[in-house]
Simulated scan of single mutants.
Amino acid sequence: MPDSSLLNGRHFQIFTAVMRSRGLAEAALKLGISKAAVSKTLVLMERETGVALFAREHGRLVPTAAARRLLPRAEQAANHLAWALEEATALAQASTPTVTVAAHAPPLMALLPKAIQRFQVSHPHVNVRVQVVGPPEVLKQVAHHEVDLGVTNPPAPNTISYVQMCERRTISEDLMVAVMHRRHPLVARSTVRPEDLVGLDVIALPEESPTSLLLRATLQEAGVQPDKGIVASTSMGVCALVQQNVGIGLINPMLLSTGIFPDIVSRPFRPRVELWTEIYRSAIRPLSEEAQVLARYIEEVALALPGAGALGKGRAKSRAVK
């Protein structure tokens, strides 16, 4: 019977790197070890588990079905190792406590500033680092323990593997709005509907954006196919272009709560497209006391947002996907 007692987190870390790379050479480069060491680890894993993990086709290693099935668990083991090493390094260096947050544009502008200001008062000796990235990257950074907290939309289907490694809590529910320059013709409308977009320059978010997926489904149901327009990587980019009257955008209204775009007017979009903002944390790595406090402040700021967009007290929802 195979004996896996010789395997440890480092072996799974190397296996994961190979699975996420184009070959042994690239994996070795990422890990800072030799290609021979990578190959030796794979041989050891196959011997100790008794399972064929790779087949060689046309001179290249190809993962087997067993390897693909093992990957999520291997990533968890590798992440545990990385977490332990980070903690050991922090203890050795007696470093200043730090809380790291990744967020995309709407919560970055509407929630984090006030939450961080409160945190600076209550925890003046704790550093806060903020990563500004799109929703998929937020989830990836939380899942890989690169940040303590993530604040973003619910995931698109292509990010489900990351979500399985996270706990999430809904902190705000909003309805999509159409944003336009104050001189745009649609300002005269009380609401904007799919048919109103035909023939207009629509500034869209990337196709993989959760907001874009919801909008695309709504437009398809209405039988509307707007002309291809401009794609901005973030809703902040959408608003920057709308501010210059380049076109019309469809976004989460949370971004407008700061008033930094004085020439932008919003109108309700119908049919209703619900947008959620959630806090993400690792499902396997416990949060520090400091990170828990900052998470609570972020939620409290979301609850205090004006209008019907914020959840009422007691309505926040926790979800763990494991």
Rank of each mutant, 00 (worst) to 15 (best):
M1T: 06
S5E: 10
L6N: 05
H11F: 04
H11E: 11
Q13D: 12
I14G: 05
I14L: 13
A17Y: 01
A17Q: 05
L24H: 02
A28W: 01
K30M: 10
G32P: 06
A36D: 15
A37D: 07
V43S: 08
E46Y: 06
L53P: 01
R69G: 01
A77M: 11
L81E: 01
W83Y: 14
E86V: 11
A88C: 10
T89Q: 13
A90S: 13
Q93H: 04
A94V: 04
S95Q: 13
T100K: 11
V101R: 03
A102C: 09
L108N: 05
L108A: 04
A110S: 13
L112W: 02
K114A: 10
A115M: 08
I116K: 04
Q120R: 15
V128G: 00
R129D: 07
Q131L: 12
Q131R: 12
Q131E: 10
Q131A: 13
P135A: 15
P136G: 04
V138G: 04
K140Y: 13
H144R: 12
H144C: 09
N153M: 05
P155T: 10
T159W: 02
Y162M: 00
Q164R: 15
M165Y: 05
C166I: 01
E167D: 14
R169C: 09
R169F: 07
I171D: 14
S172W: 00
S172T: 07
D174I: 00
L175F: 14
M176R: 03
M180Y: 04
H181G: 12
R183S: 14
L186K: 06
L186R: 09
R189P: 01
V192G: 03
E195C: 02
E195T: 14
V198I: 15
G199S: 06
G199M: 11
L200Q: 15
D201Q: 11
D201T: 13
L205R: 02
P210A: 07
L215E: 04
L215D: 05
A217C: 08
Q220S: 11
Q220R: 13
E221N: 04
G223R: 04
K228L: 15
K228P: 14
C239Q: 02
A240V: 09
L241G: 02
Q244F: 00
G247A: 06
N252V: 03
M254K: 00
V265R: 02
F269L: 09
R270M: 11
P271N: 06
W276L: 15
W276S: 14
T277E: 12
T277Y: 07
I279S: 10
R281L: 02
I284H: 12
I284P: 01
I284W: 08
P286M: 13
S288D: 14
Q292V: 10
V293Y: 03
L294N: 03
A295G: 10
E299D: 12
A304Y: 07
G307C: 11
G309T: 08
R319K: 11
